[in-house]
Amino acid sequence: MNVFDIIGPVMIGPSSSHTAGAVRLGYVARKILGQRPVKADIHLSGSFAQTYRGHGTDKALIAGILGFPPDDTRIRESLDHAEKMGLDYRFVCQSIAGAHPNTARITLTGAEGESVTVQGASVGGGSILVDELNGMAVHVTGQNNTLVVLHKDKPGAIAAVTNFMAYSGVNIGSFRLARAQKGGTAVMTIEVDGDIPEILVENLKILPNIIHVVLIRAV
């Protein structure tokens, strides 16, 4: 928290939680997909479902999925931009049990056929928390540079990643691990201090047992 969180952020209105935070959620989902999205299925829960039209939450989520930042004046016309940019989208209002009141579950399909489901909430003041990726628990706030590493649940997979980060001089600020089932797919959420070089991400991708690595820069 500093003076620019108080005199700021610069954003597109009308609501930091229902508009600015929603842009960030869409943006993080796009980053996790890692390619141009062509289809978006968006489930809205709680307050998001109740008021999304009046707050422009739908426009905000789509804008983020198109890669627009929270202060981009194109957000207001993002549904038109979606059509021009070849994004097919659908909104469904459906309560998600136990979820934060401002929750969206976004399933994106990319131009290269990849698909990802990201669930997250706008937790106030434009801040977000993405807490589920393909049904697995993650913890992405978008405040720090974060690596999301999908990997096989095999011995040594975590050590290989963290050792490589240590050699590269990257300090880990927080680490979380979750898996779908024993011996199946698992996911690490690693928040780091400072920058993460792109080359590190490329090198992590070729380690054994690593399925996919996504770098989400602070947004």
């Binding site: 209105g13 609501s15 508009t19």
Partner: peptide, 12 residues
């Protein structure tokens, strides 16, 4: 309210 660009100060 019209989805224009503003500075939240302290909120929108």
């Amino acid at each position: 309210a019209a989805m224009g660009k503003i500075v939240a100060a302290p909120t929108a």
